[in-house]
């Protein structure tokens, strides 16, 4: 009666794959490894090291000064606000969408899936321009907004909107395959035993996907804090008011303030590193749990 999760399948496949790979000649393996390492160094490690060396080039004091500059602090605050709104919203939306898609059959399901992917498919610049077209002064509801003193674009709401839009698919995309693979047997069992909808969601569905969910949240957060294109279009670039961290980096760079630009950029680099560590932890944890389940089942 064991239901194999995708992790179990994949661990089985890796074992087979590895034994085949080992039969390759030694030089092929070394060549591939060397190529991969060279590639990693060139495209990941060198830029990362460069960010930190440039940031600290003028000494640690300049580094700190750049970070506690009022404009930098305000950009950090804005980025945190945008992420704090975008992540929970997309968390709720992602769970709801994945739940609907994985557990139910309905008309237009494929259209819904396509729509969820839309933010991945369109360029972030277009995403920003959409909001300018709708909420801009010349846009559909622009004059209505200005008459009522509501500011959407070139203010915080616009930045939040753009961030929500670009980070839309992460949670749902992470959960849908997971939920589909798990099937709905457990939920149906719960239903038969008399559980309510909420009970099924809280006791069965969410615990089953919690690691995938966490993974999605981490990715959403990383993208929300790092988004440049869409936010740039709706920001208006007002210093100390509507600049997020990535926009502030660009401004500093354009002001020939390279040390400060890289200092602030290093925050984003640190964020990326933390994200990677968290991501590995989550992956490791979920693999461990899957392993334990496998043992228990066999």
């Amino acid at each position: 009666m064991s239901i194999k999760t995708p992790t179990q399948y994949s661990s089985y496949h890796t074992k087979v794959a590895r034994s085949r790979a080992i039969s390759e000649p030694v030089w092929v393996r070394w060549l591939l490894v060397a190529l991969m390492l060279a590639f990693l160094t060139l495209f990941l490690i060198v830029p990362l090291v460069a960010v930190f060396t440039e940031a600290l080039r003028k000494g640690f004091d300049t580094y700190i000064t750049a970070l506690i500059d009022p404009d930098a602090l305000s950009s950090i605050k804005l980025t945190l606000i945008a992420a704090a709104i975008a992540v929970p919203l997309n968390l709720v939306f992602g769970v709801a969408a994945a739940w609907a898609i994985a557990k139910f059959e309905f008309r237009g399901k494929s259209i819904l899936i396509t729509l969820i992917d839309l933010p991945f498919a369109v360029s972030p610049v277009i995403a920003g321009l959409i909001y300018v077209l709708i909420f801009g002064l010349q846009g559909w509801v622009g004059s209505l907004l200005i008459d009522n003193d509501i500011k959407v674009i070139f203010a915080i709401p616009g930045i939040v909107l753009a961030t929500v839009f670009v980070t839309f698919p992460f949670v749902a995309r992470e959960l849908i395959p997971l939920m589909q693979a798990q099937g709905k047997d457990e939920e149906e069992a719960g239903l038969v035993l008399g559980a309510s909808g909420w009970q099924i969601l809280w006791r069965i569905t969410l615990p089953n996907v919690k690691w995938g969910l966490l993974y999605g949240v981490i990715l959403t957060n990383a993208r929300a804090m790092g988004e440049f294109g869409a936010v740039s279009v709706v920001s208006g670039h007002i210093r100390g008011m509507t600049n997020t961290v990535p926009l502030h980096v660009e401004i500093l760079y354009n002001e020939y303030n390279y040390a400060a630009a890289f200092a602030v950029a290093s925050l984003l680099a640190i964020l990326a590193l933390v994200t990677l560590v968290l991501k590995s932890l989550v992956e490791w944890q979920s693999a461990r749990i899957a392993g334990e389940q496998e043992q228990a089942l066999s």
């Binding site: 300018v132 622009g142 500011k151 674009i153 070139f154 670039h237 007002i238 100390g240």
Partner: peptide, 20 residues
């Protein structure tokens, strides 16, 4: 005084679109 800087045409566009 807060400032916003960018290509002149782009900035004019932003004001027209409601950058107040």
């Amino acid at each position: 005084v807060k400032g916003s800087h960018g290509g002149s045409g782009k900035q004019a566009r932003a004001i027209i679109d409601g950058l107040d």
